[in-house]
Amino acid sequence: MVTLYDFELSANCYSVRLMLSILGVHYETVSVDIYPGSDNRSEWFGKLNPEGTLPVLVDGGYIISDANPCLIHLAGKYDDTDRWHPIQDWMVYPLMLGWFDFARRLTASAGVARTGVAFGWNADLPALQAEAHRLLRRLDEHLWFGEKQGRDWLVAGEHPTIADIAVFPDVVLSEEGGVSRQDYPAVRRWLDRVRRIPGFVVMSGVFPAAPERSTVPLDLRRS
């Protein structure tokens, strides 16, 4: 049995929900009310994760905290193809770790700006937003040249990896923290591509993408 300790509005929890859904893993959620309940500071949650952070994934008695370790666990255990987590590929794997680091910095800037705006938490918004824009500029450049080189995803390969899933939530939710993506057209196109991955799920503030032109199923809803 897989249990996700989850806060609906958390971008990091969203990345784990995304991965669970994409891999088709059945799971149940325990809702942990970070705001306004501060349940993550409670004694019972402290026994699960002394850091008091979400998400926490419990899989057959094995406890994993935080988004990126959860993604690695899920891809390692539930993706038989190893496409989501190509650990054998020494050309790709270190780059993936780099994007995990990028995701963490994005959470610390765009993500903190977003929770600052949403929950009224103390945050130096101009500084956080400026850092988020700096990161998005880098991301846009990386993705623009990727398109020119035939690479759709953050790291090389035909298939997306958990790096895309790690970076996606704080990017797609950035506007809630006052960080517009208007200057990042290649990022916006990548967001469309991620949102077309089979099994993709939305959350509050995230909308589905239009189906791709070539693959619009004629019998989409025919029973």
């Binding site: 057209p185 916006r188 196109r189 469309d192 189906p211």
Partner: peptide, 16 residues
């Protein structure tokens, strides 16, 4: 206001 390449099918570009 955009590059032609900015407008793949089934995408909406945000311009100003």
């Amino acid at each position: 206001v955009a590059s032609s390449d900015d407008l793949p099918f089934r995408h909406v570009y945000h311009g100003q």
